[in-house]
């Protein structure tokens, strides 16, 4: 894939023909220095951004995202993938339970709301309890520690049982011990069969993945 950003009058190519295949159930770590285009690659995979025109494509389960309708791509982001960001990105006005429920609410049709909301609440609560956050359900993000916030973010990413978890430096903003806890949580999800694509610049974290690829000068090297 190719991706070029335009900064003022200057074109800045970020990805210059990066190719990556991820098998179901695989954990791929993308290693690379700052500014090498790791996050851009992840955004393209998660359909938050699109490759340049004639700059390649993202295929999921054999189907090109570019060929899908807007609605199908919204559904892809909602159901098939889960995002975890370095800075958690929780909504400050919602409490822990509501933040976790959000992807389910986004994907839920109005008519099904009252029929399914009880069941969804139960799933979100179970997820949070399994992450040790059962006592924090009604707390706002600002009342949580960094590690707790990231656990909520992971719970949110997993809420709709996605096939792929896209994690952008998930431990980058945490101290070592907390980072290790978060990583254990991700490892656990991987053992349960979740496909993971994780961007990191920390080789020690990358080592725990099934496969490590390096992104250098906009290209992938195994």
């Amino acid at each position: 894939m190719h991706k070029t950003y335009r900064l003022g009058r200057v074109d800045v190519p970020v990805l210059k023909g990066a190719t990556l295949h991820v098998k179901p159930g695989e954990w791929v770590a993308i290693l690379g220095p700052s500014g090498s285009g790791k996050s851009t690659l992840l955004h393209l995979l998660g359909d938050l951004d699109q490759p340049d025109a004639d700059g390649g494509e993202v295929r999921f389960d054999g189907r090109s995202l570019a060929s899908m309708s807007r609605r199908a791509r919204n559904l892809y982001r909602n159901r098939s993938i889960g995002f975890v960001f370095q800075f958690y990105h929780l909504l400050p006005e919602l409490n822990v339970l509501e933040n976790t429920l959000l992807p389910a609410l986004v994907g839920l049709h109005r008519w099904n709301y009252y029929r399914r909301i009880g069941q969804l609440r139960k799933r979100a609560t179970q997820l949070l309890e399994s992450f040790g956050l059962g006592h924090r359900l009604k707390h706002r993000p600002r009342e949580l520690s960094g590690g707790e916030r990231q656990r909520v973010a992971i719970a949110r990413a997993l809420m709709n049982n996605p096939k792929v978890l896209l994690a952008d430096e998930p431990t980058g903003n945490l101290d070592e011990a907390t980072g290790a806890e978060i990583l254990d949580l991700i490892v656990q999800q991987h053992r349960d069969g979740l496909t993971i694509v994780m961007v990191t610049h920390d080789p020690a974290i990358a080592e725990r993945a099934d496969r490590v690829v390096h992104l250098h000068d906009g290209r992938i090297a195994e």
């Binding site: 938050l48 807007r70 982001r77 909602n78 995002f83 909504l91 959000l102 992807p103």
Partner: peptide, 11 residues
Amino acid sequence: DIGILRSIGAS
């Protein structure tokens, strides 16, 4: 918030 909502599938 808008970015977050888009990332989780909001149209």
